[in-house]
Write a protein that binds this DNA or RNA. Structure first.
Lengths: 230, 230
DNA sequence: CGTGCAATTGAAAGTACTCAAGCCACGTGG
DNA sequence: CCACGTGGCTTGAGTACTTTCAATTGCACG
């Protein structure tokens, strides 16, 4: 498990990106266009044809599935530099929507797939990307399958803290509802878990979106079950 | 969601396999050796170094994580032809164990990675494999995050039925405990869910491991929430 | 100073879990 | 051949946790 969390540490992307299209330093020659996506705006729907794939330049995008009763499960949040829409086949398997206002780079999916296939370096890069993403999802599988609401929220905050690399103080860019849909909980349970963590002195909040984490290791311990927390 | 389940339909592997090492028809030149693994025997532990990766020739292998309190989350079951251990980095991220007696083909991990990197076709094959696996995990993420115990068990049986392609009658090769660890439930809850499905006439059992599914679509409907089943 | 939305809190209901006991097929030994 | 133990599965009763439904608070905005 320690290995998993070590893996989860994601390098921080600069807020403003490099000029041209590239992936991990490798230049992409496939044509790309820019697209703005507003917060709450839908990029594509589950079942849509998938002619494009996207790279986040700035902002946050979420991909989610909607169940027949309207509840949602957020599959993944994508931050700056992340590429998504590439692993789909003929049609989109999830719905994508802007969490914040976003700037995206759009690639023709076939052209990009072709370019990847013809470059060993790019192929390797994509293999690595998929492996990393697979690990992340598997970590979350353990969370959703075996961890309590408090543990999930704690783990969520720890992950955010590591991503933002601003220990002590993090800004949660997603709503409580989005956290809930990400963690497989209801919005109320997320609130109560946050309250519980506050009560225990593990976090404090300057505003509803600004969290302080005095001792990240303590929070991480909670997330990993070191304590009588179910 | 329908697209997801369509994707999940896995071609059935023959019980006895091709003679040589290959992946989706592509020959592998990397050296390989055979290894027997008994039911319940551990292949590797989370945290072990990962010099090898494996292909299942016959039998079933499970990969799982163990939590600090001893509970387990099964990450994936691997059947004939499946390759695993490839997506790990320096050390294993999960523990692998035989569900049944198994015959495995072992590859030197570095050699295989190198061979993949040097073959565009193999790279493509592996990209596809990882994408498919990612989709599968994401499906399960929705299950664990948003579906009831009965829905999870129903979905599990439907998936098994599609894999075995023997509609009407399936043999569950894994124990109740393994199903529970796979679905993020307890063994008792799995039993009760099975009982519930029996009560509703959606399944029947010749023995504890032999299930009959008179109308798979009805079971699939339950799994997808078409009904007042939470 | 209302309006509206996000977040929070409370109370009741529901679902899955825990602990405990019973069942059943199977293998062993008397 | 049968009593006895074993391990996997099932069922029951009570508990713990999360959800549901219903208010309430807090804050930004007009």
């Amino acid at each position: 498990m320690s290995t998993l969390s070590a893996l989860a540490q994601k390098k921080i992307a600069p807020l403003v990106n490099n000029i041209g299209p590239d992936i991990g330093g490798l230049q992409l020659t496939a044509k790309s266009t820019l697209k703005r996506l507003k917060a709450g705006e839908t990029l594509y729907l589950e079942g849509d044809t998938a002619p494009y794939c996207y790279q986040v330049i700035s902002g946050i995008v979420k991909e989610f599935n909607t169940l027949s009763d309207g509840r949602r499960q957020v599959i993944e949040f994508y931050n700056a530099d992340d590429i998504f829409g590439i692993s789909e086949l003929h049609s989109q398997l999830h719905t994508a929507e802007g969490v914040t206002d976003c700037l995206l780079r759009c690639f023709d999916r076939n052209a990009l797939v072709h370019e990847i296939a013809s470059s060993p370096q790019l192929s390797q890069r994509f293999l690595d990307m998929l492996m990393l993403r697979l690990h992340r999802v598997r970590e979350r599988l353990v969370m959703l399958g075996r961890m309590s609401s408090v543990q999930r929220v704690a783990a969520f905050l720890v992950r955010l803290s590591k991503e933002q690399a601003t220990t002590q103080h993090i800004i949660v860019m997603v709503s409580r509802q989005e956290i809930a849909d990400h963690l497989g909980l209801t919005i109320e349970t997320v609130c109560r878990a946050i309250t519980e963590l506050k009560k225990r002195g593990l976090i404090s909040m300057a505003s509803k979106r600004d969290f302080s984490i005095p001792e990240i290791n303590l929070l991480d311990d909670i997330a990993h079950g070191e304590h009588g927390v179910h």
